[in-house]
Design a protein around this nucleic acid. Structure first.
Lengths: 207, 207
DNA sequence: ATGCTCTTGACCGAATCGGTTTAGAGAGGT
DNA sequence: ACCTCTCTAAACCGATTCGGTCAAGAGCAT
């Protein structure tokens, strides 16, 4: 494992990206070490040279993603933000900066969440048990809902926004690294539009 | 192949669903015939008994999905609908009725669209070339955009709605058959809310 | 019993799996 | 020049799985 960590960072990232992509889109069992090696542009032997076993590589990726997410959340999460839409903007800011480090992290994590292979599922459960406060922190507790017009259905807005975020994320993961920010801008404009139309007039931004 | 078609419809559907699911989520190469057989609750030998080869099964599914889509579109598509949101509702109506026949069709079709395996990609290209007028028909040509408030950014609304539709579809494909309609209702309410807030006041529905 | 259809588990060679070993290419020290 | 040491890829290992086949039931009608 030190073998891998002493590689130039650039090369590490290429390998990590390839592995995240393969595991994320094919699951643990169906993602073969050869696939990962080819996608990373190295030989299969090197993967074993660096990580020992397929399982060790997988667990390494889990922990890596975990710490990247943790760092990014601790750095950017601000509980004092109570505005509904600003909370969402903050969440997507976090997701973007995670994807800037490794674009395949979100799809890898969702795939991991539903992973069911005997060889790794117990380890996943153990790791997941330690960090399930993510969602609670990021979730919308203590958010100010009073600014909405009285007639809008809040639960519906929540659901709609989760759809938007999902679709937006899905579209993100097919993008090249460079388009992240322009898409984030579009997403934010989209939120502003909703804000202007769903908030009581006292709260809409001047434009 | 006649062997398969002379099966009771019920059993045919179970097998089709299993195959669509496996091919859709794993791609052509990584979806093994054993997987499909297990998912369908039959033995692997039966799959070959019914379809001859793996490739024949795959191509059969493509043509099946194609004709199901075609039927549903021809039956439900109404070009005289010019209202933006009604168009979208119609599209999702079509998608729902397709999914009611085989829930895995949309994910299968997108997977097929990006399929790159040597064994089938040429056939896919040939089939796709014959029916690419789908998207054009369903797309928003001849739709009335004048009802929107002047200040809303139409392209942005389009993009937002495509996000919503994507996320909504993604959520749909994880649902049991029964929840389709309740989710469709939520989606439609969601559209109504947007309509009420983004259209000029002359056009909002009375409530 | 005698057919006949439907279905399966065992089986085939070939490919691929996770993982190991070998050997060459290159850099650096002397 | 020679040696050593690191990094890497290709060839290889036994085991599993692949797509596909086949002989032998299981069930049923005659």
């Amino acid at each position: 494992m030190e073998k891998f960590l002493s590689l130039p960072r650039e090369k590490q990232n290429v390998i990590i990206d390839a592995a995240l992509r393969m595991f994320g889109s094919n699951g643990y069992k169906k993602a073969s070490v050869s696939d990962i090696a080819v996608a990373a542009g190295i030989s299969k032997a090197m993967v074993f040279h660096y990580f020992g076993t397929k399982k060790a590589l997988y667990l390494y990726l889990i922990n890596l993603c975990g710490s990247i997410m943790m760092n990014e959340i601790n750095e950017k999460f601000d509980n004092s933000i109570t505005d509904f839409f600003d909370r969402i903007k903050m969440s997507s800011q976090i997701e973007i900066s995670v994807m800037k480090k490794h674009a395949a992290i979100p799809s890898f994590l969702t795939s991991m969440y539903f992973e069911n292979d005997e060889e790794v599922k117990d380890d996943i459960k153990a790791i997941l048990a330690g960090g399930d406060d993510f969602r609670n922190k990021i979730a919308f507790e203590g958010v100010d809902t009073s600014k909405f017009k009285d007639e809008v259905d809040l639960k519906l807005v929540m659901k709609m926004l989760s759809w938007i975020a999902d679709g937006y994320t899905k579209q993100l993961s097919n993008q090249s690294e460079f388009d992240f920010d322009v898409m984030l801008n579009e997403f934010n404009e989209c939120l502003d539009m909703l804000k202007n139309n769903l908030y009581k007039e006292d709260y809409v931004q001047n434009r």
